[in-house]
Design a protein around this nucleic acid. Structure first.
Length: 423
RNA sequence: GGAGAGGUGGCCGAGCGGCUGAAGGCCCUGCUCUCGAAAAGCAGUAUUCUGCCAAAAGCGGAAUCGUGGGUUCGAAUCCCACCCUCUCCGCCA
């Protein structure tokens, strides 16, 4: 969420930034309601001030045994008037809140302006796509033939877009999770977290999924609880409504969780395979930093995620999301895309973002500088490190052999009990 | 699910209609003392909104004692509802 004062004082800048995102908002209503709110507030505070002063008088008079009846009667009316004004105030505040909560973050100045994903500039390409002397198969075919993935039975159990891993498939998924967590905790200084997979409405609002994107979430029936769409949500909210000490920062957390997404509006897209599922596994990286270092932290976060692909020797590229493609809460985002030979394209496998103080303001996460008065909002960041299901798919496709078997990447073998190949 | 206890500032904890934005303590910051440190002493130290101001500083006002309502001239304090935590019982991986 943006600061109300900032929006008020920079209406045209906010409007401009909205349009580079291809988004709009009713800033006219905001302007009117905000002005009305402040006018009402002034009046209310005036009345309340009067009431406070007179109430003291009444107390004094009563103590002295004097008759305060006329003042009491007068204040009765003042209180009634305050109540009236309060109502119109909270109505205005509700409207303002709705508009403010629906405003996306303002992209950082380094974010390229663009309309959509085709305008995302390429930052770098690492590794060479493997060359096959046969037609590379898609991972769902390989997986089903090897008996390590079974989409048909999964749909029997639940429905479309749910994964069922079996045997060495389950083992590979678990190996990847451990591999990623181990690197981030022992080499990159992240603390491992295992959070709840179900969160409440406030938590979802804190990171920006609510109120705008409720349809993307799975909600528990009859409860104000939601399945998490990413570990970002519970992990960022660990410090919800807290004041951190300057010397605690930066805080780095990593967490494995399953992720649940309704994928509303993506019917017909990536219907086959592990790319787009209602449930998938992900290892997430989350950081809390001081404002002045958050962009350095974003670069190192990207590094930390890239390392996984480098160790697995998977070819990938990194792009910078342009203003038209960047997410609602983010000020800047890098996407890491892994090479998928069967489709001959790079597919997103990680998204690394700096949210600056956008989430911190919603979730009320602040810090105190040593020797300084007051508090400041922290900057929050997160990135996938990595999406496990998509990594699984990438390994199958990039390491496939002519006979349909799959070689296990060197770095992963110790996590696979020494297995070198799935066949 | 049943019974009870409780939710107060960065932390601990008092208060149970007006003198309480909140005692006392801790933490932290500055100063005194010291060669320095510790100890001790003194002082300071919540947040949000808002008015004056171009802005900052400053000064003024309002709000905030789990959340939302209510009673009252006046609520941390009384009433109602809800949320959360803890203890005991039951059930259970």
């Amino acid at each position: 969420m943006l600061e109300i004062k900032f929006v008020r004082q920079n209406l045209s800048e906010v409007e401009k930034s909205l349009s580079t995102r291809g988004d709009t908002a009713d800033l006219e209503t905001f302007k009117n309601c905000d002005a009305a709110r402040r006018k009402t507030l002034l009046e209310i505070e005036d009345l309340r001030h009067r009431r406070n002063v007179v109430s003291d008088q009444i107390a004094d008079m009563k103590k002295k045994g004097e008759d305060a009846e006329s003042l009491v009667l007068e204040m009765r009316e003042v209180s009634a008037r305050i109540k009236e004004l309060d109502k119109s105030l909270s109505e205005n505040e509700e409207i303002i809140r709705n508009i403010i909560m629906g405003l996306p973050n303002i992209p950082h100045e380094s974010v390229p302006v663009g309309k959509n994903e085709s305008d995302n500039p390429l930052l770098k390409q690492i590794g060479k796509p493997p060359e096959f002397d046969f037609e590379p198969k898609p991972h769902w075919e390989l997986g089903e033939k090897l008996g390590i993935l079974d989409f048909e039975r999964a749909s029997k159990i639940t429905g479309a877009r749910f994964p069922l891993y079996l045997g060495m498939g389950s083992r590979l998924e678990r190996a990847l999770i451990n591999f990623m967590l181990d690197i981030h905790t022992t080499e990159h200084g992240y603390k491992e977290i295992l959070p709840p997979f179900i969160v409440n409405r406030q938590t979802m609002t804190g990171t920006g999924q609510l109120p705008k994107f409720e349809e993307d979430l799975f909600k528990l029936e009859g409860l104000e609880y939601f399945l998490i769409p990413t570990a970002e949500v519970p992990v960022t909210n660990i410090h919800q409504a807290e004041v951190l000490n300057e010397d605690q920062l930066p805080i780095r957390y990593t967490a494995y969780t399953p992720c649940f997404r309704s994928e509303a509006g993506s019917y017909g897209k990536d219907t086959r395979g592990l790319i787009r599922q209602h449930q998938f596994n992900k290892v997430e990286l989350v950081k809390f930093s001081k404002p002045e270092t958050s962009y350095d932290e974003l670069e190192s976060l990207l590094d930390n995620a890239e390392i996984i692909l480098k160790r697995l020797e998977l070819p990938y590229q990194v792009i910078t999301l342009c203003t038209g493609d960047i997410g609602f809460s983010a000020a800047k985002t890098y996407d890491i895309e892994v090479w998928m030979p069967a489709q001959g394209v790079y597919r997103e496998i990680s998204s690394c973002s700096n949210f600056e103080d956008f989430q911190a303001r919603r979730a009320n996460i602040r810090f105190k500088r040593k020797g300084k008065k007051g508090t400041e909002l922290v900057h929050t960041l997160n990135g996938s490190g990595l999406a496990v299901g998509r990594t699984f798919a990438a390994i199958l496709e990039n390491y496939q052999q002519a006979d349909g078997s799959v070689i296990i990447p060197q770095a992963l073998r110790s996590y696979m009990g020494g297995v070198e190949k799935i066949s």
